[in-house]
Design a protein around this nucleic acid. Structure first.
Length: 813
RNA sequence: GCCCGGGUGGCGAAAUUGGCAGACGCAUGGGACUUAAAAUCCCAAGGGAGGCAACUCCCGUGCGGGUUCGAUUCCCGCCCCGGGCACCA
């Protein structure tokens, strides 16, 4: 590397990685930092395959931003860690027959090695792993805080069950109703006791706050979809059981305006009123239907298919028309949404129409478009609300549907049988996992005291080292088989109690890790109040959109609860979030079966981390991703070779001497453009701008010291080792990152003369060179004097002249 | 079906309060250097037509309309690709 004519990335990178560690270059003083900037990237799950190019792309883009902010004078904290618990690791361990407790540390060691070689500005003093008892102690502590605040509760809930694996499956492991690992085995649903967090309670705030967040639009949109607000009404129908007794049934609808068209009611099969409303004559058929639907797995139940259902034998009264309408059960109505019961309006709802056709139920039209016969048969349900008026709806006839919506809700409210409500799709967060590889949920069950939280002083509840970590057919976590762990004294009365054997969801681990990073030095608290005030919320968070919904939403929820508990003073943990794009290879998705996976190690070994970093950022806009093509990487490498040469030349005697105007302007414009582009995460165009500058320097044969130094600094966020080496060769003793971002000369950012485009009737015909901000008359004179222009305007009358200063003049003839 | 992105040369891509379409790079062709090759350097290049040539003309940003002196950019109606949600009443 001391060879001045040759850039040797391997030597340069090894040297600077060692030196950064020696000099503690990337370890900001967390308590003293005057301008804290928390630069966060999503911590990886340490898979056995190692760091993939998607991780590398994301981390590099985030690291560039952090390094750039550091050069602007911020104290940047850039931590890294490992999201190492979870079903992913556990399934892999089961497949390989290796205990996750052995496998995961091995993977982490490999990840650490890879993370060091990509040259990111990680502060390794604050590394964390969610599997570390010193970390999950506080994950359990957070569970206890939520439990004590009434935000955690237990209830029976349906899970996917594979009779062959004899275990609970995640929704992603169910493929079209069949087990992922046993394609011939139908997945069923089973009811199990599970722990939930009350996130649904926070739906209005989770939704409303989105408008004020500086986040990628795609991410905010995904969260809005997930939270799923719908405005509607709850309406009570009077139903009557077999004995003629009144049974009030509440339905939820977003279209109360269509109530006159409700010709039957439908209950979810699990609805609590089903039993009472089923008449003896219908009992057998209903029971058979219930059994059939109960067997279906959760995914299949929600997949559109032919409508099925059963008549209960009972009827209700439509409160608008007074008509007697039948009550059905059908699995197209979901217990978890709304009230688990609907009023069916087959004339104006596709699903209800389909059901009515299948079971020959009456269809009534209550909406008619302009010129449509109010009594025309409905052949296809009209479901819109605009440009349509009420028909067959009593006193509301003739109103627009929009107006009727409000009027009918008011009418129902007046009669005390309905009210306008907002409904959300988001459900409470089920955090229970009947698995081994996670933090045990810190609860104890006692026959006399009931459910008792583990005292905070007894945390962590250690995950026992057991050999048979595989799930079995009991549907209960493997932890239950370990009696010496399972049986424990009740913290309240001292009698023999039993531990909760479920572990918590991985998303709980990752919902608060950003709070832990600054405080990893404190074994006695989850997050230090002073450090938290200084460093949080996170200044900029960069990650993939695969976590757009769950991880980011859960983190926001946890922050809201902690804020309510007075433990932190913010409720939105990530001030700015940017979703990065995805990398494809030669136009196709990367996958092992295609054999087109880019392995970062191979490219780093061949080209060096800096060239690889630069290429990854150059192949497309960071927020959109791009296409990785092997041939493309030579471009950035050639560019770095040229810069290396410029550095060498700048050290010589005849570097440049006088900076000609063209070079001066390009130099200053480049500083402005690169700064703007880095700020906007447009790394590809920042790199292009620096390439342009280098092209000009080479054309003009100029290697002026000051310009070359600025170039080295501007490149430093992207190619940190390379820039450090150049910086040292330029005679500096300190790190390039302890220096400053270049300043620019505003007078040299704009040129003295500009080229103005000459158009004739909107078509570009020529261009003229005029002084900056020249008046219109002068430009017009120059334009009409131009020979080419003259050919197009001669003999024609000028009707109009449009002049855009410094840009264009358009002569309309 | 609904909600977000996106569609521009051979390829990856630039270009925004509406103003030169294709910056920058890859690949390609030609030339220089070399015994030769690699590397490096120089030149060419959206497509088509005309000209010995400097050059000139026409077409061109997924498709069809519109607004405008001027549209990759704004409006209306579609098509295709990627992602999210989805029997959510």
């Amino acid at each position: 590397m001391s060879d001045n004519t040759h850039y040797d990335p391997q030597a340069v990178e090894a040297k600077w990685q060692a030196r950064w560690a020696e000099r503690h270059t990337n370890e900001p003083d967390l308590s003293g930092a005057p301008r804290p900037f928390y630069n966060l990237m999503m911590f990886p799950y340490p898979s056995a395959e190692g760091l993939h190019v998607g991780n590398m792309f994301a981390f590099t883009g985030s690291d560039i931003f952090g390094r750039f902010k550091r050069l602007l004078g911020y104290n940047v904290f850039e931590p890294i860690g490992f999201d190492a618990f979870g079903i992913h690791s556990e399934n892999f361990a089961i497949k390989q027959g290796i205990h996750p407790g052995e496998l995961i540390p091995r993977n982490i060691t490999n990840f650490r090695r890879q993370l060091r070689q990509i040259g990111a500005m990680f502060d390794w003093r604050h590394e964390l792993s969610t599997t570390d008892p010193g970390y999950y102690k506080w994950t359990q502590w957070i569970f206890l805080q939520l439990y004590k605040a009434g935000k955690a509760y237990k209830k029976r809930a349906a899970v996917n069950w594979c009779p062959e694996c004899k275990t609970v499956l995640a929704n992603e492991q169910v493929i079209n109703g069949f087990c992922e690992r046993h394609p011939d085995t139908r997945v069923e649903q089973r009811m199990l006791e599970q722990w939930f967090f009350r996130i649904a309670e926070y739906a209005p705030r989770l939704l409303a706050n989105l408008d004020g967040l500086d986040w990628s639009e795609s991410t905010r949109s995904a969260q809005r979809n997930w939270i799923g607000r719908s405005d509607g009404a709850r309406i009570t129908f009077n139903a009557f059981d077999g004995g003629g007794d009144r049974v009030p049934l509440e339905v939820f609808t977003t279209r109360p305006d269509t109530i006159f068209g409700a010709t039957y009611l439908v209950l979810a099969p699990e609805h609590s009123a089903v039993e009472r409303l089923t008449t003896p004559a219908c009992r057998a058929a209903v029971a058979a239907y219930l059994e059939r639907t109960a067997k279906l797995d959760l995914v299949s139940r929600k997949t559109v298919k032919e409508k099925t259902g059963e008549f209960t034998g009972s009827f209700a009264e439509n409160p608008a028309t007074g008509a007697r309408i039948p009550i059905w059960i059908a699995d197209y109505v979901l217990l978890e949404y709304g009230t688990g019961a609907i009023m069916a309006v087959p004339g104006h709802d596709e699903r209800d129409f389909e059901f009515a056709q299948a079971f020959e139920l009456p269809v009534v039209r209550v909406l008619a478009r302009e010129g449509e016969n109010p009594d025309a048969r409905v052949n296809e349900p009209f479901t819109g609300i605009d440009d349509v008026r009420m028909v067959n709806s009593g006193r509301f006839n003739g109103m627009t549907a929009r107006d009727a919506l409000g009027a009918i809700v008011a009418w129902l409210e007046q009669r005390g049988i309905g009210q306008g409500v907002v409904n959300y799709r988001i459900h409470d967060w089920c955090i229970s996992r009947q698995r081994y590889w996670g933090p045990p949920i810190p609860m104890i069950y006692c026959d006399t005291c009931g459910a008792v939280p583990v005292p905070e002083s007894d945390l962590p509840v250690l995950l026992p080292q057991i050999e048979d970590f595989r799930p079995d057919d009991s549907g209960i976590s493997p932890l239950a088989r370990h009696k010496e762990w399972y049986y424990v004294a009740c913290p309240t009365c001292g009698a023999q109690g039993r531990r909760e054997t479920d572990v918590s969801d991985t998303f709980l681990d990752s919902s608060w890790y950003h709070l832990r990073y600054p405080s990893t030095d404190f074994p006695d608290r989850a997050f230090d109040p002073a450090l938290t005030r200084k460093w949080l919320p996170v200044t900029t968070y960069i990650g993939g959109n695969e976590h757009a919904v769950l991880h980011l939403l859960y983190s926001r929820f946890i922050a809201m609860v902690l804020k309510e508990l007075g433990m932190i003073d913010f409720e939105e943990p990530f001030t700015r979030f940017r979703a990065h794009g995805t990398i494809v290879k030669d136009g196709a998705k990367m996958s092992k079966s295609r054999g087109n996976v880019v392995v970062p190690d191979e490219y780093i070994a061949k080209w060096g981390a800096d060239t690889f970093r630069m290429y990854l950022m150059y192949l497309g806009p960071f927020e959109e991703g791009g296409d990785f093509q092997d041939s493309g990487i030579s471009g950035p490498r050639r560019f770095l070779d040229k810069v290396w040469k410029l550095v060498t030349e700048s050290l010589g005697q005849d570097a440049c001497g006088e900076i000609i105007h063209r070079v001066g302007v390009k130099w200053n414009q480049t500083v402005v453009k690169v700064q703007e582009n880095l700020e906007a995460l447009k790394y590809n165009t920042a790199i292009a701008a620096m390439m342009e500058l280098v092209n000009v320097l080479r054309e003009e044969n100029c290697a002026e010291r000051q310009i070359v130094e600025d170039l080295v600094v501007m490149l430093a966020p992207i190619t940190p080792h390379f820039s450090e080496e150049c910086w040292e060769r330029l005679g500096h003793k300190t790190s390039v990152f302890d220096g400053q971002w270049p300043r620019w000369d505003p007078s040299l950012v704009v040129e003295g003369t500009v080229e103005v485009v000459v158009q004739v009737s909107g078509k570009t015909r020529s261009k003229v060179l005029v002084g900056r901000d020249a008046p219109e008359a002068e430009v017009l004179k120059a334009a009409t004097a131009d020979a080419t222009t003259r050919r197009f305007i001669e003999g024609k009358e000028t009707r109009k002249v449009i002049y855009v200063p410094n840009r264009l003049i358009n002569i309309v003839v």
